[in-house]
Design a binder for these strands. Structure first.
Length: 714
DNA sequence: TAAGTAGAGGCGAGTTTAGG
DNA sequence: CCTAAACTCGCCTCTACTTA
C-alpha cells in the first residue's frame, strides 16, 4: 500500500568522490515512474528553469504568507512571465511540478531558494535537493533490513500490542541470534544484488554525466524505555486481531510463513475497517476497546502501586474522534443542529458540490443564499430553529438517561454550545421585549390622542389604526419609543428570559443553575445573608418597590428610574462601587460555602455589612448633596455587565409563563386604559395591569411586594 | 546517513463553530 | 455578518534497529 511512498522524493544519489562539473546546459532525460509527470520536467533545461524562477521572484506578492502552491496558482501574474518558446501556463505547470517535489509546507518565497538551487544542478543529492533522478538505481537493502522485512510482520502478528520501535528492538534481538549460516544466506543475496546495483549505477552515471553526487543530512535520535502494563488496544487493532485469528483458523499456519500474504491480508482488513464494516460492528469493537482501556487503567494503577517512581506514558485516547462520535451516537446523544438557517442551507448545498473547487463552494453558496427569495430563507431559518429546539429536547432526554457518573461529563461537553443557545434565546427575548415595550408606549400615547379626536370610535378600531401607523413608521420615527423601551429594559433583570428557558428546556444546565441557587437559599436560611443586589440602581429599585405601595408596580419602577437619574454621577458611581464590592464579597462567600459548606467568618460578615447602603441613605430626597460623598473613588460603573451576568445565574423560585406578543398588546390596552375597556371586572384588570408596559416582567402577581423584591434582588 | 515499517504527533491549510 | 478560535484533513517526520 505504502510501497509507492516517496518514490521520487527520497531516492538519493550515492556518495561519491566523483564530482561532476556543473553544467548549465544539462539536459535531463530521466523518466519518472509516474509518466504523467515526466515530459515537461525532462524538457526543461537548467538555465531555462533558472530564468523561470528568477522571473517568478520578480513577481512575488508583497505578503507571501500562503502555501506556495496557492501563491503559484493565484498570486502570480503568469502573463508577465516571458520565456522564449514557453507559454505562461507551461511555466506555471512546470514551476508547480518542480516545487511539489521539493517541500510541501512552505511559502513561495522560501521555496524559490530551493528551486533555484535545484536549477543550478538538478538531481544533485543534497538536503535542499530532495528530488532524485527517477533512473537512479536503488541500493540493495542491507542484510539486516532484509531480515527486518521478513521478520517484522510475523513479530507484529505475534505481538500485536507492540509499536514499531518495540518491534524493531525485537527484530534486532532475533537478528543477533540468527545462525551464521542464515546470515551468510542474506549476505549472498545482498552481494548478488550489489553486483547488479553497481552495474546499474555505472550505467546511470554514464547516461547522466551532468549529475553531481553530494552528501546527505543528519538525523536525530532519542530513546525512551517502555515498561508497565500493555497499552489499551484501539478498536481497529482489536478488529484486526479478530480477523487475523479467524483467517489463520481457516487457512492453517500458512499466513505465518508467507509475509507477503500477511501484508495483503492485513491491508484487506484495514480496508474493510475503513470502508465497508457496518457502524454496528464498529461500535462492538469500540466497546471492546473501551473495556480494554478499563483493563489498562486498572493494571496501571496496580503497577504504579508497586512501582511508585513509574511515570505513566501519555497515551492518546483509544478512540479516534469519529469513533467517539459514533459511540455517543449509538448511545443516543443527539447531533448538534445547524446554528442558523444559513448553516442548514450550506450544509445541504455542500452535499452536491463535490465537483466544484473547495474554496469556491462557500462563495457560491453565499451567493445563492443571497439570491434566494426571502420566503425560502425564512423556511430554512424556521427549520433551523425547529431543529435547535428539538436538539435541546433530545439532549435533555439523553442526559436524563445517562448514568449519574457520565451526566456531568456529557453535560460539560455540550456546555459551550448550550451557553451559546442560552445567549441566543436571551438576546432574542430581549429584543422582542424592547420591540413590544416600544409599541406599547406608542399605543398608549396615540390612543389618548385619538380618543380625544374621535370620541365616537371604539377602542378596537383605534387600536387597529395605531398598529397600522406603527407598521408604517420608520426607524427614526420609532426611535423615541425604542429608546424608552431600551431604558426600561436596562433596569429590568433578565429573569423572565431565563425563566422562559427553564420552562421550555428543563435540562442539566438549568439544573446546575438551580443547585447553585439552592446553595444560596441554604446560606440565607443559615445566616440570613442574601445575595446582594448587583448594582446601585438595583438597590434604588429595591428600595422604591418595597416602600412605595402607593404606586403601581410599573410606576414604581419608573419612579425608581427617575430617582436614579436624578442622583449625581458621583453618587451613582459610589453606589455602584459599593454594590460591586459587596457582590464580589458575596461571591467569595458562596463559593466557599459551595465548596465545603464553610459559613462566612465574622470578618466577611462585617465586610458585607460595610458595603451595604442603608435605605435611609437612598431615601434622602435632596439628591444634590454629593459633597459629603466619601465613598466615591471615581471607578467606572459596569453594573450593566454585572446585572447581565447575574441574570444568567438567577434562581427560579417563581416560574413565569412566557408571554405571547398579542397577549401583551391586548393586556396593555386593557391595563393602561382601564377607563375605556369594555366592562371587565375590576379584579381582572388589576391582575392584568401588572402584565403591561414595563410591568411585562411582573405578570400574574398576587403578592406584588414579595415578588418585586425577589425579582430585583436576584 | 539511509534503507524498511506503522502509528503518533506536528504542522499548514482549509473549514466550522462560538460569540459579539 | 464577521472574526477568532477550534477543529479537521492530509501530508510529513520521527521512532526503534543494523549495515554499508
Amino acid at each position: 500500500m505504502s510501497k509507492k511512498k516517496s518514490k521520487t522524493k527520497n531516492i538519493k544519489v550515492e556518495n561519491s568522490t566523483e564530482t561532476l562539473s556543473l553544467s548549465s546546459k544539462c539536459n535531463i532525460e530521466g523518466v519518472f515512474d509516474d509518466d504523467t509527470e515526466t515530459e515537461s520536467i525532462t524538457e526543461w533545461k537548467a538555465d531555462e528553469m533558472m530564468l523561470l524562477f528568477n522571473n517568478i521572484q520578480q513577481l512575488l506578492p508583497k505578503n507571501d504568507l500562503g502555501k506556495y502552491s496557492t501563491t503559484l496558482e493565484k498570486g502570480i501574474d503568469w502573463n508577465r512571465i516571458r520565456l522564449p518558446n514557453r507559454d505562461p501556463d507551461e511555466c506555471k505547470q512546470h514551476a508547480l511540478k518542480i516545487m511539489k517535489q521539493l517541500r510541501q509546507h512552505r511559502t513561495l518565497t522560501e521555496m524559490l531558494e530551493d528551486a533555484k538551487k535545484f536549477a543550478e544542478n538538478p538531481w544533485k543529492s543534497q538536503q535542499t535537493h530532495r528530488i532524485n533522478h527517477p533512473d537512479l538505481p536503488k541500493k540493495p537493502l542491507s542484510t539486516y533490513l532484509k531480515y527486518f522485512l521478513e521478520k517484522s510482520p510475523k513479530l507484529q502478528a505475534l505481538n500485536p500490542t507492540m509499536n514499531m520501535s518495540e518491534i524493531a528492538k525485537l527484530v534486532a534481538e532475533h537478528y543477533a541470534k540468527i545462525t551464521p549460516k542464515k546470515k551468510a544466506h542474506y549476505k549472498k543475496i545482498y552481494d548478488e544484488e550489489m553486483v547488479v546495483y553497481r552495474q546499474k549505477l555505472l550505467e546511470f552515471k554514464s547516461n547522466h554525466p551532468e549529475i553531481e553526487f553530494g552528501s546527505n543530512g543528519s538525523r536525530r535520535f532519542c530513546d525512551d524505555q517502555k515498561i508497565g502494563p500493555i497499552k489499551p488496544r484501539t478498536p481497529f487493532q482489536l478488529y484486526k486481531d479478530y480477523r487475523l485469528k479467524k483467517y489463520i483458523e481457516e487457512n492453517g499456519e500458512e499466513i505465518e510463513e508467507n509475509e507477503e500474504m500477511l501484508k495483503i491480508v492485513v491491508d484487506a482488513i484495514r480496508e474493510a475497517w475503513n470502508n465497508t464494516i457496518s457502524d454496528k460492528k464498529r461500535y462492538k469493537f469500540i466497546k471492546k476497546s473501551l473495556k480494554d482501556q478499563e483493563r489498562y487503567d486498572q493494571e496501571l494503577k496496580e503497577f504504579q502501586e508497586s512501582n511508585p517512581k513509574f511515570v505513566a506514558p501519555k497515551l492518546k485516547s483509544v478512540l479516534t474522534k469519529s469513533e467517539l462520535e459514533l459511540k455517543l451516537k449509538y448511545e443516543g446523544k443527539p447531533s448538534r443542529p445547524p446554528r442558523s438557517g444559513y448553516t442548514l442551507f450550506s450544509k445541504e448545498m455542500l452535499k452536491n458540490m463535490s465537483d466544484i473547487e473547495t474554496n469556491e463552494r462557500m462563495v457560491k453558496i453565499a451567493k445563492i443564499w443571497k439570491e434566494l427569495p426571502e420566503s425560502e430563507r425564512n423556511r430554512y431559518n424556521d427549520e433551523a430553529t425547529k431543529l435547535g429546539a428539538q436538539y435541546l429536547q433530545d439532549l435533555n432526554d439523553y442526559l436524563k438517561n445517562l448514568p449519574e457518573d457520565d451526566k456531568e461529563r456529557a453535560f460539560l461537553e455540550e456546555k459551550s454550545y448550550y451557553n451559546r443557545k442560552v445567549h441566543d434565546i436571551k438576546k432574542k427575548a430581549e429584543q422582542s421585549f424592547v420591540d413590544n415595550t416600544a409599541l406599547i408606549a406608542y399605543q398608549m400615547e396615540e390612543l389618548k390622542r385619538l380618543q380625544q379626536l374621535h370620541p365616537e370610535k371604539n377602542t378596537a378600531d383605534l387600536m387597529n389604526i395605531i398598529n397600522n401607523e406603527w407598521k408604517k413608521m420608520n426607524k427614526d420615527q420609532k426611535s423615541v419609543y425604542m429608546n424608552l423601551a431600551q431604558s426600561i429594559k436596562s433596569f429590568v433583570p433578565n429573569k423572565q428570559v431565563m425563566n422562559k428557558l427553564i420552562n421550555e428546556n428543563d435540562t442539566k444546565l438549568i439544573k446546575i443553575m438551580k443547585t447553585k441557587n439552592e446553595k444560596e437559599e441554604e446560606l440565607f436560611r443559615l445566616t440570613g445573608i442574601k445575595k446582594p443586589r448587583p448594582s446601585g440602581f438595583n438597590q434604588v429599585c429595591h428600595y422604591i418597590l418595597v416602600n412605595r405601595h402607593d404606586l403601581a408596580t410599573r410606576d414604581r419602577l419608573r419612579f425608581a428610574s427617575e430617582r436614579w437619574r436624578s442622583l449625581s454621577q458621583a453618587k451613582r458611581n459610589a453606589y455602584n462601587l459599593l454594590a460591586k464590592r459587596k457582590f464580589q464579597c458575596y461571591k467569595e462567600v458562596i463559593a466557599k460555602f459551595k465548596e465545603n459548606g464553610r459559613l462566612p467568618t465574622e470578618e466577611e460578615k462585617a465586610l458585607l455589612e460595610k458595603y451595604s447602603v442603608s435605605d435611609d441613605e437612598i431615601n434622602e430626597d435632596n439628591d444634590e448633596n454629593t459633597k459629603d460623598n466619601d465613598i466615591d473613588d471615581g471607578e467606572d460603573d459596569d453594573d450593566d455587565e454585572k446585572t447581565e451576568k447575574n441574570g444568567i445565574e438567577t434562581d427560579s423560585s417563581t416560574p413565569p409563563t412566557p408571554l405571547q406578543t398579542d397577549q401583551i398588546q391586548n393586556s396593555t390596552v386593557a391595563g393602561s386604559k382601564r377607563s375605556i375597556t369594555e366592562e371587565s371586572s375590576q379584579k381582572k384588570l388589576n391582575t392584568k395591569k401588572f402584565k403591561t408596559g414595563d410591568g411585562l416582567l411582573y405578570e400574574e402577581s398576587s403578592d406584588e411586594t414579595d415578588e418585586d423584591d425577589d425579582l430585583l434582588s436576584e
